[in-house]
Design a binder for these strands. Structure first.
Lengths: 237, 237
DNA sequence: CGGCAACTTGAAGGAAATCAACGTTAGTGG
DNA sequence: CCACTAACGTTGATTTCCTTCAAGTTGCCG
């Protein structure tokens, strides 16, 4: 259950030059108001099913409870750009205008709670603390987006991959998992479209890191971080 | 004077795949409250003077009234990344936590109005409409940052430059200026650090556009757009 | 076992970075 | 007003990294 006392994730640290992946607030809900409502309409999506498309009416705010969501945009030239990945506990679409600015697709079996926008608006009107929390959420997401932007603007393929893996590792640590064992729910294409690289470069970089003894890849979807120290070094550029 | 009725800039259109430059709200102020306060402490900065540094306490929100501000970050490896440019009417630091997540430098003579954060917090508490407006502002900036990110992830040097010039052109049009005459208050280094390119590439791309008859450069700081059609085409990728 | 999609690896090509030199502009002091 | 200087900008030659194109390989699911 969402607790009123749940605060925003204290680990978001815009000062560090890594970790652009969203690590958002758990428990943005205000008391049991949201809880009651959202319980009444849970939704489940199959792998590669779209939750919504860019331009769709953003009538609801989504909270991911299970699975991983890939936010993406399709360009006129046919290219695809992955904006972000959303994990359990993350909120989607909380600070958007009337329509969604990106599409969202389930990477595996995804479960979300749908929170109607009017409820959000009502809470903003009636509870200043809620508005402040949403604002903080938006500013955190902005900081993370800038981090990712910086990564794309200034870093090599190897550095981008290192940043990416460390972001996943960090998320694991924060959710009580093994920081040195990273599961990849997304394909190489997803990773490439997120990091601004081709699948070939993603694959080659994985191999290079493997050869260097920095990671191991027992399966294509499992990364074992063997040398976190070195990975951090590479992430710096 | 800031008017209560002033709404958010209707021209921000996240659907379009161009124009990542901030075109933010004029008149975020709530009635005359902010107006009264901010009038009392205007600040002026000389070219290349820093308004604040990354990590500084964000005690105030800044509204640019004159000149152009360059938001940037310095990386451990010595690289510099330009996050954004802020023009008259733009707000800086409205959605940031306790400390600034980037440094800000005046590109030319800059005048800003400093709005104390406690006042902002007070307005959020007491006026839901103000909170909603700030949230809208944050969501617009997020959309624009994503637009820029997409540009860095997926576009060629030429396309990035085209997008950049069109963004400046658009801003001109919206402020009643000549959309086909763009003044560049920033250096080639600034542009390069913003677009993730070297100064040489920026310069070469200017020359290429000039050779193609798409732009003219009567002075290094003045761009005349001769073929907006073609420039739009190039901006697509 | 077959078939297909995802992934890996190799070779060739290209776009931008780097290295290096030259030109241009603005600002300073004689 | 001109000479000098330093910062900024342009252009060329070379190198590097990533993309593209083209096979293979792996692994999953019927």
């Amino acid at each position: 259950m969402l607790a009123m006392t749940a605060t925003l994730d204290p680990h978001v640290d815009p000062q560090r030059n890594v970790f652009p992946l969203p690590v958002k607030a758990r428990g943005v809900g205000d008391d049991i108001v949201i809880d009651q409502f959202s319980q009444s309409m849970p939704s489940v999506y199959a792998p590669r099913e779209d939750l919504f498309l860019e331009g769709d009416d953003a009538s609801h705010l989504l909270e991911v409870t299970d699975g991983v969501v890939c936010a993406y945009r399709l360009l006129p030239d046919g290219h695809r750009h992955v904006v972000s990945f959303y994990f359990p506990g993350d909120l989607i679409g909380y600070c958007c205008a009337g329509t969604h600015t990106f599409s969202a697709q389930a990477l595996n079996k995804v479960r979300v709670r749908r929170i109607p926008r009017p409820l959000i608006n009502h809470l903003i009107e009636t509870r200043p603390s809620f508005a402040r929390r949403l604002l903080k959420l938006a500013s955190d997401e902005l900081a993370m987006t800038r981090e990712h932007m910086l990564c794309l603007a200034a870093k090599s393929a190897e550095a981008r991959m290192a940043v990416f893996l460390l972001a996943l590792s960090r998320r694991n640590r924060e959710t009580g998992g093994d920081p040195n064992r990273v599961e990849l729910p997304m394909t190489r294409v997803d990773i490439g479209d997120y990091l601004g690289l081709t699948i070939e470069t993603v694959s080659r970089t994985f191999s290079k890191l493997k050869r260097g003894g920095i990671i191991a890849l027992p399966r294509t979807t499992t990364v074992l971080i063997k040398d976190p120290e070195e990975l951090h070094y590479l992430a710096q550029g």
